[in-house]
Write a protein that binds this DNA or RNA. Structure first.
Length: 672
DNA sequence: CACTCCGGGATTTTT
DNA sequence: TCCCGGAGTG
C-alpha cells in the first residue's frame, strides 16, 4: 500500500481496470498495486464507463483500508463526480442495509450494535457460568456459525457432542436475547442483509439497482456470509471485481474461507481472471525466497512474483541462544545496519507470531534507547471511559438495550447495585420487557424498596429528559451537557489517581470533540443524527490518529503487518512450534485441514513485507518453565531455498557482547 | 473463607 | 504485556 508509483499502469493492471464485460477476479500478488487497480477502476467506471459514483461500492475489511482507498480515489476523481460513492467496510454497508430494511428484519431503526464484550457478557448470562474459556469457545462457535450461514437448528443437528449441542442451544437463545434487546452483533450486520436479500425479491432488486458495480478488496478474507451478500447484490448482472491473493489468506480461523475463491469460478463460468505478478516492493532475492516458500503450498492459481528491482541484499538467517539473546542481537544488528545505511528507525519492522513475543524486544530496544511503536495496542474505543459514554449514547438511542442500561445505570455509582438490578431483571424477565421499561411499571413496586425504586426512576427520568433533547439538538452539545450532569470528570478523579484521571478525561474530551466534528461533516451536507453516529461508532475500533510520522521501529504481529511494507524487516522467533505454531499440524481433529498452509502463508506475508533487506532469526533454546527447552529452526527457513551466497552464515551462539561485536563487524564487511 | 501476590504461559484480530 | 491459577495470609 505504498504511495502511487509514478509509472503508468502495467498491462495486467490496465486489463483489470478496463475489463467490464463480466465478473472479474484480480489475483494481486503482494506489492503488485492492488489498491491502485481498485481506485483506478473506480475512476474508470465513472469517467469512461458512464457509471454514477453513487451506484458503485468498494468494500474493504478495515476502516483503515477504506479510508486509504477513499483518499486515493479523491486524488483521481474530482469531488463532484465522486459524490455518493460508497467506499466502506463490509460491516458499514451492512449497517446501512439493516437500518434501511429494519422493518423487514423486525428491528427498530434505532437498533443497537453489540460489541464482542457485550456479547461475551450476554453468553455468560445465558450459560450461567464463570468459565471464561468456555464462554469464549461458545462465542467463537456462534460467530463461526453465523459467518458460515449455519442457523441454530442446523448447528444443533450438526452437533457431534454434548458441548457443541450446548453451544447450539445457547446460540438459539443468544439470538432471541439480541432480538429482545433490539440489538445485533457484528456478524449479524452481514448475515441479516444476506438473509433478507435472499428471501425478499423486492429488496434484492432495490439494492441491485442501487449498487450496480461492486469492488471487493482482500477477497481471500471473505467468509461464506460475505460472499453470499456479494453474490446477492451483484445479482445476475454479476458486475463486480474481486481483488485478492490466495497466498495471503491468513484469517481462516476467523471464518474466512478460500473456498470463496474456488467457488467464484464455478458460480461464474464467465469469470475473467487477471493476475498481477509484477511486484513493486521488494528486491528480487526477497521475492525468490517468498516464491520458493509458497511453492510448497498446493496452488489454486499459479502465480510467480517478479520485480524489476535488482537482486538486493543477501537475506540473513541467524540463530540465537535464547529469546533474550535474539532480541539483543536483533537490536545490535538493527543499530549497525541503520548506521551503515543512514536509515531511519521507522524503516525497520520487527515481526513475530504472537503478541507476547514483543516483550523481550521492547526491553532490548528500551535498553538501547531506541524509539519503537507497538502495533495493535488497545483500541481507543475499548477504554472504559469511552465505553461508558457509548453506553449512554446507546441507551439514549435504544432504551431496550439492556447491556447499555446496566453499564449506564451503574456508572457513575448512584446507589443502584447488583441486588437491585437482579430484582429488576427478574421482574423484567417475567413481564418480557426491557429493564428500562420495567423500571416505570407499578408492578415493580412490590419487589423493591421504595428507595431503590426512586433511584431507578430518577435515572429513568434523567435519560428521558436527555433523550428529549437529543432528538432536537446536535449530538456533541447534548453529550457535553450529559457529561456535566453526570459530573463524569469528578467521577474519574474520584476513582483514579490524578494522572490517570486526567488522561481518561482527556480521552473523553477527545471523543466528544471527534463526535462533534463527525456531527457536522457529511459529504451530502446533512448532519448525521445521534442514532446514525452511535451506530457508526460501534464499527470503528481505532481512532485513526496513526502516528505514521514518528521515527520509531515498528513492532508488530505478522497478522497486523499485512498490507504494510518496510524497507528492512526482521522476522523473529521463526521456530517450529511458533511458526508453524504448535497445534497447526494437520493430524489433530481440527475443523480446518489446512493449518500448516495458513502458517506458511503467514510466513509468506512476513517475507513480502520487506522492501530491501530481510533478516530471519530463531532461537536454539527458549525459556520454558524453569529451564530452557531446545528449539528447532522452522521448516519454512529451509523452504525459502536460500542458495549459497544468498545467506550469511548463521551467527554462532552463545557469544559475549565483544565477540558479537566483532562478528558483527565481519558481517558488515561481508555485506559491504 | 476470601483476597492478594507471585510465577508461569501465551496464537493470530476486525468489525 | 496480560491473564490465570495456586499458594499463602488475614
Amino acid at each position: 500500500m505504498s504511495a502511487a508509483p509514478p509509472h503508468p499502469l502495467n498491462p495486467a493492471q490496465r486489463e483489470a481496470v478496463r475489463y467490464l464485460d463480466g465478473p472479474c477476479l484480480v489475483l494481486a500478488g503482494a506489492g503488485s498495486g492492488k489498491t491502485r487497480v481498485i481506485t483506478h477502476k473506480i475512476a474508470h467506471l465513472v469517467q469512461e464507463a458512464g457509471y454514477a459514483a453513487r451506484n458503485i461500492a468498494a468494500l474493504t475489511f478495515t476502516n483503515k483500508a477504506a479510508q486509504e482507498m477513499q483518499e486515493r480515489v479523491a486524488q483521481l476523481l474530482p469531488k463532484e463526480s465522486a459524490s455518493g460513492l460508497t467506499v466502506c467496510t463490509f460491516h458499514a454497508l451492512g449497517v446501512r442495509i439493516v437500518r434501511e430494511e429494519a422493518k423487514a428484519l423486525g428491528l427498530k431503526p434505532s437498533f443497537s450494535i453489540m460489541d464482542a464484550d457485550d456479547c461475551f457478557g450476554l453468553i455468560q448470562q445465558l450459560c450461567a457460568t464463570t468459565d471464561k474459556q468456555l464462554i469464549r469457545r461458545i462465542q467463537t462457535a456462534i460467530s463461526l456459525w453465523k459467518n458460515g450461514l449455519v442457523a441454530p437448528d442446523d448447528a444443533n443437528h450438526l452437533a457431534s457432542d454434548e458441548n457443541e449441542a450446548q453451544a447450539a442451544r445457547i446460540y438459539r437463545s443468544y439470538n432471541a436475547t439480541l432480538s429482545a434487546y433490539q440489538a445485533v452483533d457484528f456478524d449479524d450486520l452481514i448475515r441479516l442483509p444476506a438473509e433478507l436479500l435472499q428471501r425478499d425479491d423486492e429488496a434484492r432488486t432495490r439494492w441491485q439497482n442501487r449498487l450496480r458495480y461492486l469492488l471487493v478488496d482482500e477477497y481471500q478474507d471473505t467468509n461464506a456470509c460475505q460472499y453470499q451478500l456479494l453474490k446477492l447484490i451483484a445479482g445476475p448482472r454479476a458486475a463486480f471485481t474481486a481483488v485478492g491473493d490466495d497466498d495471503q489468506a491468513i484469517y481462516a480461523w476467523r471464518g474466512a474461507t478460500l473456498e470463496n475463491l474456488r467457488q467464484l469460478q464455478t458460480d461464474f463460468a464467465q469469470l475473467k481472471v487477471v493476475k498481477l505478478e509484477q511486484n513493486y516492493r521488494s528486491s528480487a532475492r526477497i521475492l525468490q525466497a517468498a516464491n520458493s516458500l509458497i511453492a510448497n503450498n498446493p496452488k489454486l492459481f499459479e502465480k510467480k512474483l517478479w520485480s524489476e528491482h535488482g537482486m538486493g541484499d543477501a537475506i540473513q538467517i541467524s540463530m540465537a541462544d535464547s529469546d533474550e539473546h535474539e532480541a539483543e542481537s536483533v537490536v545490535i544488528k538493527l543499530q549497525a545496519h541503520k548506521f551503515e545505511r543512514r536509515a531511519k528507525f521507522s524503516d525497520y519492522a520487527i515481526l513475530y507470531r504472537g503478541n507476547h513475543q514483543a516483550r523481550v524486544f521492547e526491553q532490548a530496544l528500551r535498553k538501547e534507547k531506541i524509539p519503537y511503536l507497538l502495533s495493535g495496542g488497545q483500541s481507543f474505543f475499548d477504554r472504559a471511559e469511552i465505553r461508558d459514554i457509548i453506553a449512554y449514547l446507546r441507551l439514549l438511542v435504544n432504551q431496550d438495550d439492556d447491556p447499555a442500561f446496566i453499564r449506564a445505570v451503574t456508572t457513575p455509582k448512584r446507589g443502584i447495585g447488583s441486588a437491585t438490578l437482579e430484582a429488576l431483571g427478574t421482574y423484567a424477565g417475567e413481564r418480557e420487557v426491557s429493564l428500562f421499561t420495567a423500571l416505570f411499571e407499578r408492578g415493580l413496586e412490590s419487589r423493591l424498596a421504595a428507595r431503590q425504586i426512586e433511584l431507578l426512576r430518577t435515572f429513568g427520568e434523567f435519560i428521558n429528559r436527555i433523550e428529549w433533547r437529543a432528538q432536537r439538538e446536535p449530538a456533541g452539545e447534548v453529550l457535553d451537557e450529559l457529561m456535566k450532569a453526570l459530573d463524569y470528570e469528578a467521577y474519574l478523579y474520584d476513582g483514579n489517581d490524578d494522572r490517570t484521571a486526567q488522561s481518561k478525561w482527556q480521552n473523553v474530551l477527545d471523543f466528544t470533540t471527534w463526535l462533534k466534528q463527525k456531527g457536522e461533516e457529511d459529504e451530502n451536507g446533512k448532519a448525521p443524527t445521534l442514532l446514525q453516529l452511535t451506530q457508526t461508532i460501534a464499527l470503528i475500533s481505532m481512532l485513526d490518529k496513526q502516528e505514521g510520522e514518528q521515527d520509531a521501529v515498528r513492532l508488530s504481529t505478522l497478522h497486523a503487518a499485512k498490507g504494510l511494507e518496510y524497507p528492512h524487516v526482521f522476522l523473529v522467533g521463526i521456530e517450529e512450534g511458533l511458526l508453524p505454531h504448535k497445534g497447526s499440524e494437520d493430524d489433530d481433529l481440527t475443523l480446518l485441514p489446512t493449518r500448516i498452509e495458513e502458517e506458511r502463508r503467514l510466513m509468506y506475508v512476513g517475507i513480502t513485507r520487506a522492501q530491501r533487506s530481510l533478516h530471519v532469526s530463531w532461537c536454539k533454546k527458549r525459556k520454558r518453565g524453569r529451564d530452557m527447552a531446545a528449539r528447532e529452526a522452522s521448516r519454512f527457513i529451509g523452504e525459502m531455498q536460500l542458495g549459497e551466497g544468498q545467506v550469511n552464515a548463521p551467527e554462532e551462539a552463545p557469544m559475549s557482547s565483544k565477540e558479537r561485536l566483532s562478528n558483527l563487524k565481519a558481517l558488515l564487511n561481508k555485506t559491504m
